[in-house]
Amino acid sequence: MVNNIDTVNENIIWECLYDVEDPELPISIVDLGIVNQVAIVRDETVNNGSKVFVDITPTFTGCPAWKEIEKRVIENVSLIENVTEVQVRLNYSTEWTLEKISLKGKAKLNEFGVAMSKIWRGKEIVRCPRCKATNVSRENEFGPTLCKMIYYCNDCREPFEALKSLL
């Protein structure tokens, strides 16, 4: 008899993915907004087994952290009961943008010292994550990771990182 009922609950997978931290930013990959879909398919070869497919859109196509993210997702999701196989698929049909980061994720990044960048009326607006000043200068359009730039706050005189708006 073919049973079409999933033996794995999708919510549990999302919870599990929530525990996967991005290797280069101190937030969950779910908060970062790079996980865009989870699919569960019955594994007919194993009693009650299911295969899980996780679709991820990296922040940057050339992102070297991608392999580590894949490893962490497989390790975590494989722990769930009845999961027989986990596959991480790269999905480029959608673009990652700063808007995909959850509010909680943005707050956490800010706390950590990573600012967002916004383009308003054609001008890039970046706020210092510490003192919230907009009196900042861009020191470098590139940064320690592909997705970041380096800024300097002229008010509190501290350097900080900001995520690229990619616009």
């Binding site: 940057f60 196509t61 050339g62 990771t145």
Partner: peptide, 10 residues
């Protein structure tokens, strides 16, 4: 370094 990493990734 960042540009180089991006190009090699591409």
């Amino acid at each position: 370094s960042s540009i180089a990493q991006d190009e090699i990734g591409h």
